[in-house]
């Protein structure tokens, strides 16, 4: 209970730091903000998403969330390897997915519930299924969880090139 309340306070004050702490987080931090280039342009009101290297497939272990950020350092997210083919999954096994970790309801930081493979929000109890394209299992957000469009190159480097919903706290996914 106490921890949960702390999480909420963290969410209120410092949500930008994210809430996922894992053994591999350091590797991700190194990846963020490096090697940014333009993703393929799209039409209409779609902003020019950067193409950002988030990690290499070798950095990922099943069910160990890797803290990342996309499209910029102020937008925390997570990469997950799930060990089974899932919607939006990339990599040799189609099992690597990436999501924002800011709750699209009120902007609180999500945490990974390994046993059920959901991202849960301590702010108002919403939860999202990372095996079902981020579908909101239950909650208050009026969207399912924004998921990264990912690409993997021949070296196994994982790039984010887009997001499929508007991120909380910004009226353009690419700020500026």
């Amino acid at each position: 209970m106490t921890r949960c309340r702390l999480m909420v306070e963290v969410g209120r004050r410092q949500f930008l730091r994210g809430s996922l702490t894992t053994a591999t987080a350091a590797a991700a931090a190194a990846a963020v903000g490096r090697g940014a280039e333009a993703a393929a342009p799209r039409g209409g009101a779609v902003p020019d998403y950067p193409r950002v290297r988030l990690a290499n497939v070798r950095d990922l272990r099943i069910d160990e969330p890797l803290e990342v950020a996309y499209p910029d350092e102020d937008a925390p997210g997570v990469l997950l390897k799930l060990g089974k083919r899932v919607p939006g999954g990339v990599g040799p096994d189609g099992d690597i997915v990436g999501f924002t970790t800011i709750c699209p309801h009120k902007g609180f930081p999500l945490h990974y519930v390994k046993e059920e493979r959901t991202l849960d929000c301590p702010g108002h109890y919403s939860r999202f299924d990372v095996e079902a394209g981020g579908q909101q299992v239950w909650g208050h957000a009026t969207m399912n969880l924004p998921q990264y469009e990912l690409e993997v190159d021949e070296k196994g480097d994982i790039y984010a090139v887009g997001v499929d919903e508007l991120l909380y706290g910004r009226l353009s996914n690419v700020l500026g």
Partner: peptide, 10 residues
């Protein structure tokens, strides 16, 4: 998704 609707604290 057919997962539990119940939020789990960290």
């Amino acid at each position: 998704s057919f997962k539990s609707k119940e939020y789990k604290p960290p």
